[in-house]
């Protein structure tokens, strides 16, 4: 067997650009997600009584409520970001349960890409909400000496975000692979169920932590 921890096999090249397996998987997941979302939105707009449109209402409403609870007011852009994060990560994790599919979130490149997107969203949201000076000022509170700690905290939490997701998904996948190699067929089923739960939980946590970070930046100048 081949244990894959950090490596990513290159399937083919488009010109000089290598296309890895993770890229293909995440593209397929993204396209499926967009298709489903467009179908749900179509149903929700035209047939609000359909049960699928009720599912769509539930998803949107729950994310809006979550963001409202965390930030303290309605914020549709943050809600959209959190919802997209959750849906993408959860879809990737569930797709990882399929045989022969390596989850896109089990690659450190993907999780760090998501973490960096969140890391960049934080100052953007803070500046949009409080202005440039208002956002930068909060790094020097309560004491200018604490500014390096703020910066380190932001970097480390981004790192933690990326590595947490990567470690959880990768280790779950690894354990399942080891059990399949050692014990055989159907034995790792309970571990796969746990893996499914952990995957959804990690998606939820990623979305919530992103919301918390962005919410903290938005309400930074309101002390």
């Amino acid at each position: 067997m081949h244990l894959r921890i950090f490596g990513d096999p290159v399937l083919f090249h488009i010109g000089t650009v290598p296309v890895t397996e993770t890229m293909v998987t995440s593209t397929v997941v993204t396209l499926l997600l967009i298709a489903t979302a467009v179908l749900l939105a179509y149903l929700a707009t035209l047939r609000p009584q359909h049960w699928l449109s009720l599912v769509a209402f539930m998803i949107v409403e729950s994310f809006d409520n979550l963001v409202t609870e965390i930030i303290g007011r309605r914020h549709t852009i943050v809600s959209t970001l959190a919802g997209s994060l959750f849906l993408f990560i959860a879809s990737c994790n569930i797709a990882g349960q399929l045989p022969g599919v390596h989850p896109a979130t089990g690659s450190l490149a993907t999780t760090s890409a998501l973490a960096v997107v969140v890391f960049l969203s934080v100052p953007i949201a803070g500046i949009r909400s409080n202005g440039v000076w208002g956002y930068i000022k909060h790094y020097f509170r309560p004491n200018p000496l604490l500014m390096p700690l703020h910066v380190i905290s932001e970097l480390s939490r981004t790192l933690a975000l990326a590595v947490r997701l990567f470690g959880n998904i990768m280790s779950g996948h690894l354990v399942v692979g080891l059990l399949v190699a050692l014990a055989g067929f159907l034995v790792p089923t309970p571990i796969m169920a746990l893996d499914l739960l952990i995957g959804l939980l990690q998606a939820y946590i990623f979305a919530i932590l992103s919301t918390v970070y962005i919410g903290a930046a938005i309400s930074a100048g309101e002390e």
Binding site: D8, M23, S26, S84, A109, T110, V117
Partner: peptide, 11 residues
């Protein structure tokens, strides 16, 4: 690096 950039843009 390609994967990283692609995933960021993709997301």
């Amino acid at each position: 690096l390609t994967t990283f950039l692609f995933e960021a843009v993709n997301f």
